[in-house]
Computed example of a mutant assay.
Amino acid sequence: MPELPEVETTLRGIAPYVEGHRVSQVMVRERRLRWPIPFELAVTLCGETVTRLRRRGKYLLFDTRAGTMLMHLGMSGSLRILREPEPPKRHEHVDIVFDDGACLRFTDPRRFGSMHWVDGDPQAHPLLAHLGPEPLSDEFTGTYLYRRSRNRRSPIKTFLMDSEVVVGVGNIYANEALFQAGIRPTRPAGKVGLVRYQRLAEAVKEVLAAAIQAGGTTLRDFTSGEGKPGYFKQELAVYGRAGEACLRCEGTVEVARLGQRATYYCPDCQR
């Protein structure tokens, strides 16, 4: 599933071709996504100019004067810009064509993505209303995490991946941030002290910022390739490295299951 850095890279890749442009046509070839695409979306969006493209968690918000199109890429979704007409392939479900001829094409093999139309404040939409703060915002601090974690018995990794606590910290980057902060993923969230939460909040920001920066090298893919920013695998310290030597202490990286998710950690570096 695309995580926050991949969604942010997608936003930066398509924004220059979307913002300030009027939608001239919307072609929906497959409505059956996680939730069916509303029939009225194409009619409502046509003729509107995208005034701003922004992100909330893993959702993309296409703002217009009439309302907002809310999009999620799901587990396998991607967006790319076509500068020349190109016959749609299998799983290429939606085209949004703009006044300059550019086409934003949505591909989703597993059809777990979604597209919604919101007339009012999109932040009040049920999918967004209960989301926690953005991890790169000033609101997200060690003090905030410490206060939210009191009396929590769940593992700290599960706590960190709770979208009502903080949005967009998915499995890969939760593993990486906990390693950087030296905290074992299985430790109960309520048993972690303030100083360690301050270290964790900084680690989350650093890991996500590094991933977004690394994703910048894939921006050209949105007009020439598949439009899929890759995870910054060359920077991963523990994720996917079970049985390999820890990059910090040369011990062995182990893997466990937490909430049906693979969890990677160094038992020597993380306590």
Rank of each mutant, 00 (worst) to 15 (best):
Q180H: 11
E254Q: 15
G47A: 08
Q213P: 01
P135F: 09
M71P: 02
R56A: 07
V192H: 02
E244W: 00
A177V: 08
D268E: 15
R111S: 04
P5M: 03
L247A: 11
L104D: 01
T49E: 10
L45V: 10
T143G: 15
D119W: 14
D95F: 08
V7N: 01
V94T: 11
H93E: 00
R52G: 00
V253R: 00
Y144S: 11
R187Y: 01
Y197D: 05
R148D: 05
C269W: 14
S78N: 12
P185W: 13
W117V: 10
R196Q: 13
Q25V: 04
L79I: 04
G20F: 04
H125V: 09
L128N: 13
G142M: 07
G190D: 05
G243A: 06
S149K: 03
A210S: 14
K191R: 10
Y144K: 01
V166N: 08
E19Y: 03
H72C: 09
M75E: 09
L208M: 04
L11G: 00
G77P: 02
L11I: 07
P5G: 02
S76F: 00
K58W: 07
A214M: 13
A174S: 13
E176I: 03
H130C: 08
L258F: 04
N171W: 09
S149V: 07
L33K: 10
I96V: 15
E48P: 05
P229W: 05
A210M: 09
L160K: 05
I212Q: 01
V43N: 02
D138P: 00
I96R: 00
D63R: 09
C266I: 13
D221L: 15
E244I: 01
R241P: 03
E40K: 12
R150P: 00
